[in-house]
Deep mutational scan, measured.
Amino acid sequence: KFNKELSVAGREIVTLPNLNDPQKKAFIFSLWDDPSQSANLLAEAKKLNDAQAPK
């Protein structure tokens, strides 16, 4: 279960257009550290992506 959630969340995070590479890497490392938090980490990444969207 975690492997699928981890890969789905990881793929989504790397495609978020408004995150820079260090931010993406930080989220990916957090996913590896605790795969059970993949849904929460993906939600946080999406929030940050939205907040950094060009206005």
Rank of each mutant, 00 (worst) to 15 (best):
Asn20Ile: 06
Asp34Gln: 06
Lys25Phe: 12
Lys25Trp: 15
Asp21Met: 10
Glu44Phe: 05
Ile13Asp: 01
Gly10Asn: 06
Ser30His: 13
Phe29Leu: 14
Gly10Lys: 11
Lys4Ile: 10
Lys25Ser: 10
Asp21Phe: 10
Asn49Ile: 02
Pro35Arg: 00
Pro35Ile: 04
Lys55Met: 10
Gly10Gln: 14
Leu6Val: 12
Ser38Asp: 05
Lys1Gln: 13
Val14His: 07
Asp50Gly: 07
Asp21Cys: 15
Val14Glu: 14
Val14Met: 14
Gln23Met: 04
Asp21Ser: 07
Leu41Ser: 02
Ala26Phe: 13
Ala45Ile: 02
Lys55Ala: 10
Ile28Arg: 00
Ala45Glu: 01
Lys47Asp: 06
Ala39Trp: 05
Ala26Cys: 15
Ala26Met: 11
Asn20Arg: 08
Ser7His: 12
Gly10Ile: 15
Ala45Pro: 02
Ala43His: 05
Asp21Ala: 09
Ala26His: 13
Lys25Asn: 12
Ala51Asp: 09
Lys24Gly: 00
Lys24Ile: 07
Leu31Trp: 03
Asp50His: 07
Pro22Trp: 14
Gly10Thr: 15
Leu41Phe: 03
Pro22Ser: 15
Ala53Asn: 07
Lys55Glu: 10
Pro17Asn: 05
Lys1Arg: 14
Asp33Ala: 12
Thr15Val: 09
Lys46Thr: 05
Pro35Leu: 03
Ser38Pro: 02
Gln23Cys: 06
Asn3Leu: 13
Ala53Leu: 05
Gln23Ser: 02
Leu42Tyr: 02
Ser38Ala: 14
Ala51His: 08
Asn3Ile: 13
Lys46Val: 07
Asn18Phe: 14
Ser7Ala: 12
Ala9Ile: 15
Ser30Cys: 15
Lys4Val: 13
Ala9Asp: 05
Gln52Gly: 04
Lys25Gln: 14
Pro22Ile: 15
Val14Asn: 11
Lys4Gln: 12
Arg11Cys: 15
Ile28Phe: 03
Leu42Gly: 01
Ala39His: 13
Thr15Ser: 13
Glu44Gly: 03
Lys24Thr: 01
Gln37Asp: 07
Thr15Phe: 11
Pro54Leu: 08
Ala39Lys: 10
Lys4Arg: 08
Pro54Ile: 08
Gln52Tyr: 05
Glu44Ala: 10
Asp21Gln: 07
Ser7Thr: 13
Ala45Ser: 03
Leu19Ile: 04
